[in-house]
Design a protein around this nucleic acid. Structure first.
Lengths: 210, 210
DNA sequence: TTACAAACGTATCTTATGTTACATATAAAA
DNA sequence: TTTTATATGTAACATAAGATACGTTTGTAA
């Protein structure tokens, strides 16, 4: 590995563990829009995010998609971890939302470290905790909000993750993420523009307030 | 504690751990429809289900509810566990679906056992894994299914949990669990009856096939 | 510059779901 | 038996969201 570990991890892991990570983890650079994993794929390693962001989606048998949440620096994919430990196939699809750097930890090491390092156990538990929280918010969003509210929330979330109030995306892509149609998104975006919450351009949307 | 530990747990935990559980766990009998915990409650112990079933709900700020999943014998509430470990308030509401027996484990013991017993760690990891899986199905259900499909799934799930093809419930209660209105449920139930999938009576519904 | 494809706007219609209102049925209590 | 509360049936209407169709805009490449 030709990359020193990110401060986020350096501050929570024990020295010995950091050394092990530096020895065994594989550093990867992922360009934006790369699909990292698909439903049904076998999982043999677990990612630690160093920079960038990953969007995690659920896909049904008809191919309909739904964005569940974003992973950011310092996060790991608890779903992937869960699959690793249970030796089952991936339950989710993951796509790089931005150019992303990550460390891949092989599954054997995970099990070893769980017994060996308290800081690793805490990290794993905390990751599960965070993912459960995030999934609860996902449930809230689709169970209790209308599409216009979901859309605004989505736009704000995306702006937060990218650190930019201008989103470079199309109506069709938004429709995929929210599991609805392009026409519905165009309609609601127009409504949000009328309300002065956003400003529409070709291939981009400017958020007025986050 | 005046109750020997359930075979489900006896087969997965180490001897020493079982002894500790028998010494420190508090045995509780919960009558049907009892609310075990509410959103915002402080959590000081974690339940192990010995018998019965618990339904786990999400509630929004307007008081709207949504059933997420059922816990059954051998399950623990990973959400509660998660809150215990994170020392945060409960994110969910839990109600006894049936008369239920459980063991309450104090939070301090949990942390102790995590370092001490491999079988406990595995149990905790597996519980997290199961809960993530279950939450994904919840997301699938509300994201990809129409209300009539959700209703049928709900009825079958409820029949499975209670071990009875006759469900003793009202349309209003179903409406609460699915976060819709009683009229909608009555309408869809009538449709399911026409399709010979169920048989409607006052205060009960007979499921034809599970 | 023209041609083309992709992105976007919008009208029209359909359907699922939610709302209101009221009638009827049934069990339990008086 | 009569009363009462609860549960259920159903019509009529409102609204959110999905589907279809087609026109317009805009960037890019020939």
């Amino acid at each position: 590995m030709n990359q020193s570990i990110h401060p986020t991890y350096a501050s929570i892991f024990e020295k010995d563990l950091i050394e092990e990570i530096e020895q065994t983890a594989v550093f990867k650079q992922i360009p934006q829009d790369t699909t990292l994993i698909n439903i049904g794929d076998y999982v043999k390693s677990m990612p630690l995010l160093l920079s960038g962001a990953i969007k995690v989606l659920r896909v049904d048998d008809k191919g309909d998609e739904l964005l569940m949440y974003f992973l950011e620096t310092g996060d790991t994919c608890a779903m992937t971890m869960s699959c690793c430990l249970g030796h089952t196939k991936s339950e989710i699809k993951a796509v790089a939302e931005l150019d992303t750097e990550l460390l891949m930890i092989p599954v054997q090491k995970m099990e070893e470290w769980t017994a060996k390092y308290k800081s690793w156990r805490n990290f794993v538990f905390e990751s599960y905790h965070n993912r459960l929280q995030e999934l609860l918010h996902t449930v809230d969003t689709i169970a209790f909000l209308n599409m216009d509210e979901r859309l605004l929330k989505y736009l704000k979330e995306k702006a937060k993750v990218s650190g930019d109030t201008i989103l470079h995306t199309t109506h069709q892509e938004i429709a995929y993420d929210l599991n609805t149609s392009r026409v519905v998104i165009s309609r609601l975006l127009k409504k949000l523009e009328t309300l002065k919450k956003i400003e529409l351009r070709r291939n981009s949307i400017k958020i007025q307030a986050i």
